[in-house]
């Protein structure tokens, strides 16, 4: 049986000043090595849940454990376990890919030699070797996404959180990113992924959960859910479970 990568129990979270909870009694388990997708309409609580899992938000009740370590109490240990690819570009635009990787590598606690080796490898794999010394601010959106991903996996994380990692990129870049993510997963990295690109998600994820109004409404393997709800794809399943109304108005 696989180890549990992420274990969430009775999680409650509300933003300061809010009366109602944003996340209500969330219970969720993600096994190590899974490619887990978290989906839901806008404002459902996906990003909030991911921010709680990565320690960016302090939850008020319940528990989140990454490989058995409570997120709130073991920041340093937990932060060594995962990598994060936020939806926004999370790097220094003035710096080149190499300079960004050197800096974030150092902040991940890696030593100089390892940083050098790993960054060379990542630049090569993600097709950034030719532009390694150019400032990222001059890159296209797709190239910036690859830099964003490279920094997220720099510390060879056991869990990789991805918040819409392919938003705004062309088909080629999307294919390259998804292919690289699968490769990472084959090497043992657990993927926790959110996106509105449901076709892409269908291709990548083997387990999914749907969140709506701060609650997990389903959680199972994609195949099992499609069979259960008699849908042919994730998009159909999404509409079936969350309805057709606008959710962020």
């Amino acid at each position: 049986m696989n180890a549990v990568a992420v274990s969430i129990q009775n999680l409650e979270f509300k933003y300061p000043g809010q009366i109602t909870s944003c996340l209500n009694t969330i219970n969720l388990e993600v096994a190590a090595g899974e490619r887990f997708g978290l989906f839901g309409p806008n404002g459902a609580g996906k990003t909030t849940l991911m921010n709680c899992m990565t320690g960016l938000l302090n939850y008020q009740q319940g528990s989140i454990r990454l490989f058995g370590n409570e997120v709130i109490n073991n920041r340093k240990t937990v932060n060594n376990l995962f990598g994060f690819v936020p939806q926004d570009f999370s790097f220094y635009q003035e710096l080149s890919p190499v300079e960004n990787l050197n800096f974030f590598g150092a902040w991940s606690g890696m030593d100089k030699a390892v940083i050098k080796k790993k960054s060379e490898e990542l630049l090569e794999v993600l097709g950034l070797a030719d532009v390694r010394n150019k400032p990222v601010e001059k890159f296209s959106g797709g190239m910036k996404r690859r830099v964003n991903l490279a920094i997220g996996v720099m510390n060879t994380p056991r869990i990789l959180f991805l918040d819409e990692p392919t938003v705004g990129v062309d088909v080629h870049t999307r294919q390259a990113i998804i292919s690289y993510l699968k490769e990472l997963n084959n090497n043992g990295t657990t993927l926790i992924y959110t996106s509105h690109q449901l076709n892409e998600a269908e291709d990548l994820c083997n387990k999914i959960a749907m969140i709506d109004d701060g609650k997990i409404i389903v959680h199972d393997s994609l195949t099992q859910l499609l069979t259960e709800y008699k849908e042919e794809g994730l998009e159909g399943l999404f509409i079936h479970l969350t309805g057709k109304m606008y959710r962020d108005s």
Binding site: G55, L56, F84, D88, S90, Y92, W107, G109, N155
Partner: peptide
């Protein structure tokens, strides 16, 4: 304000 700060907060430093 930049995304880099979010990343910094998720690193063990």
């Amino acid at each position: 304000l930049s995304g880099s700060f979010i990343r910094l907060k998720t690193l063990p430093t």
